[in-house]
Amino acid sequence: MVRCGCVLLRKYGNFIDNVRIFTKGGSGGMGYPRLGGEGGKGGDVWVVAQKNMTLKQLKNKYPQKRFAAGGGANSRVSALKGSKGKDCEIPVPVGISVTDENGKVIGELNKEEDRILVAKGGLGGKLHTNFLPLKGQKRVIHLDLKVIADVGLVGFPNAGKSSLLSRVSHARPAIADYAFTTLRPELGKIMYNDFKQISVADLPGLIEGAHMNKGMGHKFLKHLERTKQLLFVIDISGFQLSSVTPYRTAFETIILLMKELELYKEELQAKPALLAVNKMDLPDAHVKLHELMNQLQSPEDFLHLFEKNMIPEKAVEFQHVIPVSTVTGEGIEELKKCVRKALDEQDDRENDAHHREQLLNLQIPSTAS
């Protein structure tokens, strides 16, 4: 019998992105000393990626708090080699990273039907075990969901990320005129006339100190790790979280976002990035855009205005800067073109690098001979 469930979970909104569970491989079967029979091996516990699965469904379906595989069959006169115990499969969504209690990554499930062995069954009793069976492996693991998308939206709350997602795709995220409307990742797809599709993830808004897990913190940042590119979305008029926090200009917003990415994981800064300057329908937006473009072209002339700990070691270079308005639709089609162009160029670079690597591998044997 498979007994399963979850011990601890973290959630925001109604969305669960991390589950801690107990797993146990099945015990082996007894050997048969008089006839030299071997007991069956205990079943194994596997984590398996399935389509349309969520961690919330996992929690609801298995409330018993453990996953245990079946025990191996004992050796007997009619079957000297006992049969293997039944494996236990834990169904999880695509995009799961599996770690142990110490945070060591056991493996990742990036596509449907990917599977990872997390708890081995015990050996059945045989001669070198004095015909006594071994117990299965016990292991506590963490299932951590990281959204997989082509493009991840990066911005402070109320920058208009959800509105932008609804404009460029068929997604219908919750939208309101206040901070933290987005409480869980929302996925949409940009559809092109030639049937090309690009997936876009709108994630909970950052605040200053997100790298230290303030606000949505790591719940937001970890989902950027599996996106191919970043699309920064900023409000041209700047941002202020509340009356007791400092007002930040559009340029300051960009610098702070870059710093948060750097402090969380430097590899995020290496991802190709675009910048959508939103709310261009506001008064004086074009004057502010002109000022912002000057600041982006010569950022070193303005960084002295920041405290030293706010300045990123390496600034993100934007492939395209696109002024947009999710209210009037200004720049939306241009943004969609730029997103596709950037991804196509990235794919071409990766294919060229892969081709060069294959050629190099073919040349190595002939050189050695």
Rank of each mutant, 00 (worst) to 15 (best):
H354F: 13
C6G: 15
M30N: 08
R349F: 12
E262N: 07
G136I: 08
V140I: 14
P272N: 07
L256R: 10
V47H: 06
S169A: 03
K196D: 14
V94P: 02
D344F: 12
G37A: 05
Q229N: 11
L134W: 10
C88M: 07
D344E: 15
R76Q: 12
L263V: 06
K65G: 01
E112C: 10
K341E: 13
A285K: 04
G95M: 03
C338P: 02
L303A: 05
H354D: 09
L145N: 08
R172I: 12
K146Q: 14
I207Y: 00
E260K: 07
Q269N: 15
R167Q: 05
L80S: 11
M1A: 14
K337L: 15
S243V: 10
K288F: 06
Q64A: 08
E225S: 13
I254L: 11
V118G: 08
I332M: 04
M53F: 15
A149N: 09
L117T: 02
Y12A: 14
K341A: 12
K65A: 03
D301N: 14
I207C: 06
Y264D: 10
R226H: 09
E266I: 09
L143R: 02
K265I: 01
D284H: 14
K84N: 03
W46G: 02
D284L: 15
L143F: 07
S27H: 06
V200P: 09
T129Q: 06
G155A: 01
G331K: 02
S162P: 00
Q50C: 15
R76A: 15
M310V: 00
D352R: 15
N74L: 13
I96N: 06
Q358S: 11
I141K: 03
Q358R: 13
D202G: 08
V233E: 01
R66W: 07
G42Q: 07
R167W: 00
T328L: 00
S75H: 06
L8E: 14
G331Q: 04
L221S: 05
Q269T: 06
A68E: 13
F220Q: 11
R76E: 12
A79C: 09
E345M: 08
A79N: 13
L206E: 00
E225N: 11
K314V: 10
A171T: 03
H128T: 14
S75R: 09
L335W: 02
T328E: 00
L224E: 00
D348Q: 13
Y192L: 04
G121Y: 12
